[in-house]
Each structure stands twice: as structure tokens, then as C-alpha cells.
Design a protein around this nucleic acid. Structure first.
Lengths: 108, 108
DNA sequence: GCAATATATAAGCAATTGCTTATACGATTG
DNA sequence: CAATCGTATAAGCAATTGCTTATATATTGC
């Protein structure tokens, strides 16, 4: 898988508002089971499950099984393709996110 | 148009590899007419034109008419929704890494 | 005006997407 | 074991997408 393909996957995955809302909720909660995500979501349990699979396939979340529950958490490195791509054109749009890139690098 | 909708537009627009390639070429060239973009592209002139419209609608490029030619250039602020969204979770990552550091320290 | 060039739009189509309902799988409990 | 809970998968479907060819709309030069 090339870097461009990974970037495409990340962008496509985050481009859907419902799926991005799931991702943001995982960020806010830190760690949360699929059941928790279904509650408070506008879509059905299978829809959430499909979004979680997409997020996992894109490398944006990781999961931890605990009994019947599967807890999801953010995989910060999943955003690397996006950060790296932006960084490649950094000179064009300010050094505003330089700090962010630094933080992500430190997490490796 | 809400910030979330703008972000969705930016992500969707950049998620297509062909369209992103057009965008990246505009970045590299600085300013380039549609004709130039069609040459060296794998797709037809109408396809390029449609991608340019999508990029303009997403606020990612600006155009300047010069006779029959229309020169496209990057609109750096067009990426703001993306940068802002990433920046919004910067603090989250900072906290997360702080916790990680704390955990590592405690395990010594 | 007419022809040529640069770009945009229209219409149609195959592929993809995100959702639904129904069902299956997996783990726990009694 | 059987019942139940948490999650995933299957199948189907309407909506969207990105491309094509064909045509339209500028703009310039003769």
C-alpha cells in the first residue's frame, strides 16, 4: 500500500459526517465500547459496526476485546498520512500545525 | 454552512486521487491554466474541468481569467477547516501523551 | 461575421457508498 | 446445555460519484 493510497483511505474514511462523528466520540471518550457508540447515534447498530470497521481498516482506531464488549480507542498514528501530506506542503499554509506534527512524531 | 460541512467538503474533495493530483499539480506549478492541467492528466478535459469546479467550490483553489485561459492557483485558506479540525484535537493528544509519560514514569 | 481555442455544461452510465432489515457469530450467565 | 447480550456480516437498495461523449459558451484573431 503506497502512501498515497493510505492518505486516500484516511480522507475517504473521515469524509463521511456520521463516521467522523463516531471517530470524534471515540476521541472524546478515550475508550468506549461499540454499544456506547450506538447509543446516541442516529444510525443503527450495523451501521455503526460498519463505520468502526472502516475506521479500523484506515488505521484510525484500535480495539481491545473485553468479554463480550469491544472497546475502541483512537490510534493516533492513523492520522500520520494526513499530517505528513499537510507537512509536505507546509510552506504554503503557515506553521500553525507544526506543533501538532511534533506531538504526533513523539508518540511513535 | 457550518464548519463541519466545510470540513466534509474539503475531505471529500481531497479524497479522490485524481482530483487530489490536480490540486497537487496546482500547488507545484504555483499557477497553471486548465489546459496545462489536462495535458499530463489521465482523464479527459471535462473530467479535469469538473474536478476544478469541485476544488473551487470547496474553497481550495482560486482562478484568474486571462483572455481565453483561466489560471488556477491554490487558496491556502481553503485548508483551514482541515487544519482547524486537527488543531482542535491537539490538546487531546497532548493530554494523552502526558498521561502516557506519567504512566511510563510510574512504572519505573 | 467566421473560425479556432479554452473552458464549461449536459446527459448517461457503471461503480461505489451508506443505510436498512434480517441473520449469524461469539462470549457470558444461569 | 439454553438463553441472552454484544457485535459482525449478508443482502438489497436508493443516492452519490467520477468518468465518458457530445454540445454549449466564452474569447480572440482574421
Amino acid at each position: 500500500m503506497t502512501a498515497a493510497m493510505q492518505l486516500t483511505n484516511v480522507l475517504k474514511t473521515l469524509a463521511d459526517p456520521t463516521r467522523r462523528a463516531v471517530f470524534e466520540r471515540i476521541i472524546r471518550e478515550g475508550e468506549i465500547a461499540a454499544t456506547g457508540l450506538v447509543q446516541g447515534s442516529k444510525v443503527s447498530q450495523p451501521a455503526v459496526s460498519q463505520h468502526l470497521r472502516a475506521l479500523r481498516d484506515a488505521g484510525l482506531v484500535a480495539e481491545r476485546r473485553e468479554g463480550r464488549h469491544i472497546h475502541y480507542r483512537v490510534a493516533p498514528k492513523g492520522l500520520s498520512p494526513l499530517i505528513d501530506w499537510l507537512g509536505h506542503y507546509e510552506s504554503f499554509w503557515a506553521e500553525r500545525f507544526a506543533n501538532l506534527e511534533k506531538l504526533l512524531k513523539e508518540s511513535e
